[in-house]
Design a protein around this nucleic acid. Sequence first.
DNA 1: TAACTATATAGAAGTTTTGCTATATGAATG
DNA 2: CATTCATATAGCAAAACTTCTATATAGTTA
Lengths: 109, 109
Amino acid sequence: MNDFDPSTVAALKALANPNRLKIIDWLAHPRENFPPQVDGDLVEDGVCLANIVDKLGLAQPTVTNHMHTLAEAGLVTSKPVKNWVFYKLDPAAMEKVLKSLSAHAGIDD
Amino acid sequence: MNDFDPSTVAALKALANPNRLKIIDWLAHPRENFPPQVDGDLVEDGVCLANIVDKLGLAQPTVTNHMHTLAEAGLVTSKPVKNWVFYKLDPAAMEKVLKSLSAHAGIDD
DNA sequence: TAACTATATAGAAGTTTTGCTATATGAATG
DNA sequence: CATTCATATAGCAAAACTTCTATATAGTTA
């Protein structure tokens, strides 16, 4: 019904990976999933890459890579503070993907 | 918030491909996208593989493969009639994926 | 039952994904 | 200003994905 939006596929690709989906889940509930941070608030500023690396248990460059995938798909935003990078989920982007997917599946909102 | 459901990842993987997403879209609106069928109703019985092959413009085994991917992810059902196979979208499965994804993203329904 | 038709399977090539290690960059601190 | 700490980049290997051609299977029809 809808015209085809390539960014929807990019977002779905980004989400279609167990590690990245875990990250999305964690970023949706930062206080429940990460320890308090010294240099940036978990909710206000986002979650520091190092915290995600620790929690996920993969090598740091691998996690950097996953975060870039999520960021390029527009699902998370990143903010450099000092020499950290804080990542936040973009709920509007997630809603957009959900709406697009609903439309493709012919499900009325 | 939710516990991790591997079938959600399988479904997202199945959806994270432009050709399969097109197929999902077409199956959601069969009358708008396919010619009437002689041996099975587009809506009641589903869409014949050959019709999807024609519309997608890929080789038949490639499309068979895509349909198996979608079926294994539970997103479509298949029904053999004579020597055709009819495919139908499973809207309940799609809703389940959408709900699961919403939960992961922390979006309240 | 022979031929045809629709789908499935096998196997292979090219591409993409996912992870790693090693190293570079760049900001912060002693 | 040298070191340390957090992140980025480069390059590589293994695995998975996407597509193809060739062929098999199984139901249909003449």
